[in-house]
């Protein structure tokens, strides 16, 4: 097997020619987001993994023509990681802005992905930014930054009960306009698959049907429902020449479960779709 046997295809989806990442709206979420931006309100997006939250935010940033600052949250994230810290450069100490501070100085969207993963004391620095004050006090430099009109704070999280022990402080969540995302209906999902990967409509339709069936198992046999992202992987592999059943096995079934019985059942559903 040589490398030349696998020519690199152009990256799937993403830029749809005009610059803004392509996004298929489901309801009025684009208008809501634009209204929130115009009226300087922060937005919270909740939804299962891989349903298009991050894509939506980058799509909106491009549509509104503002820069996007993304932070993926984790449980060691400190407020200094968001706001900034002093660094020692050649014997001098230099203040270095964090992504949040950069967004406030320049204007633009600051997007905190999976906010519940961050420690609760960390998210408190967002509070003065997320209400009508729209300020960011930096105690280490003694500055108080006022956010420009184009600044917007967006946070997202996955409200599955696995995150129950983490959760979001009510004082944090009650500062946001909230959007709930879920997976699109089969027809729209098929359209998304087709647009993203350029696969043939029949394959897209069947993959969307498969996802619909597997989502019946959410909370009963599966911890998480299969995401649109996984379907895109499966469609991409199939389009590259893999057998659909095999693509579903590696991109969907095995990604969803470690349990052998469950995997066997999911594969049977895939067989019922593609065999």
């Amino acid at each position: 097997m040589r490398r030349e046997d696998f020519p690199m295809p152009p990256p799937a989806g993403g830029k749809g020619g005009g610059g803004a990442p392509w996004y298929a709206p489901v309801g009025g979420e684009e208008e809501i987001f634009a209204h929130a931006w115009r009226n300087r309100l922060p937005v919270l997006i909740k939804g299962p993994t891989g349903c298009g939250k991050t894509r939506f935010v980058s799509h909106m940033a491009a549509t509104l023509g503002v820069p996007l600052f993304t932070v993926s949250c984790h449980d060691d994230l400190t407020s200094a990681d968001l706001v900034g810290r002093h660094l020692i450069v050649g014997g001098e100490t230099v203040w270095c802005d964090g992504p949040l501070t950069r967004a406030v100085r320049q204007g633009g969207i600051c997007y905190l992905d999976e906010i519940v993963e961050a420690r609760k004391d960390t998210t408190v620095v967002l509070h003065p930014l997320a209400d009508d004050r729209r300020i960011l006090p930096i105690d280490r430099t003694g500055e108080v930054l006022t956010a420009p009109p184009s600044f917007m704070l967006v946070v997202s999280y996955n409200p599955g009960y696995q995150n129950l022990l983490k959760g979001l402080k009510p004082s944090t969540r009650q500062r946001f306009v909230s959007l709930r995302f879920d997976f699109p209906d089969p027809a729209r999902e098929a359209e998304i698959l087709r647009r993203e990967t350029g696969c043939d409509p029949e394959l897209a339709r069947r993959l969307a049907g498969l996802a619909q069936a597997l989502r019946n198992l959410r909370d009963h046999d599966l911890e998480e429902a299969p995401s649109t992202r996984l379907l895109i992987y499966a469609a991409t592999l199939t389009r590259a020449g893999m057998a659909p059943l095999e693509a579903c096995r590696v991109a969907v079934v095995e990604s969803l479960t470690d349990d052998i019985d469950v995997a066997e059942a999911l594969l049977e559903v895939a067989r019922a779709t593609f065999d």
Partner: peptide
């Protein structure tokens, strides 16, 4: 029985 039950539910059977 386990794979069958999951298969049945996935195809829309009463959980």
């Amino acid at each position: 029985s386990r794979p069958l039950a999951i298969f049945f539910r996935a195809l829309g059977g009463d959980p």
